[in-house]
Simulated assay, not measured.
Amino acid sequence: MRWEGIDEFIAVGEEGSFTQAAQTLGLSVAHISRHVTKLEQRLNTQLFTRTTRKVVLTKEGEQFLHQVKHLQHAMDEATQGLASVQTSPKGKIKLTAPVMYGESFIMPIVHSFMHDHPEVEVIATLSNEQENLLEGGFDLAIRLGHLKDSSLKARRLSSRRFIMCASPAYLARFGEPHTLGELNNHQCLIGNSSYWRVNENNRDKHIKVAGRLHCNSGWALVDGAKKGLGIVQLPDYYIENEIKSGQLVPVLTAYQPQQEGVWGLYPSRQFVATNVRVLLDYLITGLKV
Score class of each variant (00 low, 15 high):
125 T>Q: 09
226 K>V: 12
226 K>L: 12
95 L>M: 15
103 E>V: 09
234 L>V: 04
122 V>R: 07
58 T>P: 05
88 S>Y: 12
11 A>P: 01
157 L>A: 06
131 E>D: 09
68 V>N: 05
83 A>N: 12
221 L>R: 01
109 I>M: 04
121 E>C: 04
108 P>Y: 11
89 P>M: 09
248 L>H: 00
143 R>F: 09
134 L>C: 02
99 V>G: 01
59 K>A: 15
214 H>I: 11
50 R>K: 15
270 Q>E: 15
102 G>Q: 01
218 G>E: 11
6 I>L: 14
39 L>D: 03
73 H>A: 13
72 Q>S: 13
180 L>Y: 04
132 N>Q: 09
97 A>C: 03
271 F>M: 11
273 A>L: 11
100 M>T: 11
53 R>Q: 11
217 S>G: 05
119 E>Q: 15
253 T>W: 03
44 N>V: 02
272 V>F: 04
221 L>H: 00
99 V>H: 04
282 Y>R: 06
199 N>Y: 00
73 H>Q: 13
227 K>P: 02
114 M>S: 05
93 I>F: 10
267 P>W: 07
123 I>N: 11
16 G>M: 08
24 T>P: 00
284 I>P: 01
116 D>V: 03
4 E>I: 14
104 S>I: 09
18 F>V: 01
82 L>F: 13
7 D>P: 05
237 Y>S: 00
39 L>V: 00
185 N>A: 13
52 T>N: 13
218 G>D: 04
118 P>G: 01
193 S>E: 15
8 E>Q: 14
164 M>I: 02
163 I>P: 00
113 F>M: 00
110 V>S: 08
59 K>C: 03
86 Q>S: 12
130 Q>F: 07
17 S>R: 01
206 H>N: 14
114 M>V: 04
131 E>K: 13
289 V>N: 13
226 K>H: 02
192 N>Q: 11
212 R>I: 09
38 K>R: 15
61 G>E: 04
167 S>P: 02
191 G>N: 12
67 Q>R: 12
220 A>T: 12
88 S>C: 08
169 A>Q: 15
84 S>E: 14
284 I>Q: 13
40 E>M: 01
46 Q>G: 08
54 K>E: 14
156 R>H: 08
240 E>I: 08
21 A>S: 04
167 S>Q: 00
136 G>V: 04
132 N>H: 10
80 Q>A: 12
80 Q>N: 10
97 A>R: 02
46 Q>C: 04
155 R>K: 13
75 M>W: 11
11 A>S: 06
212 R>A: 11
243 I>L: 08
72 Q>C: 07
120 V>N: 02
280 L>T: 03
28 S>Y: 10
248 L>I: 06
195 Y>I: 07
209 V>E: 02
60 E>I: 03
257 P>R: 11
82 L>N: 10
122 V>D: 06
132 N>P: 02
187 Q>P: 02
164 M>A: 14
267 P>S: 06
288 K>I: 09
171 L>H: 08
279 L>S: 04
273 A>Y: 09
172 A>D: 14
8 E>K: 07
37 T>C: 01
159 S>N: 11
184 N>H: 12
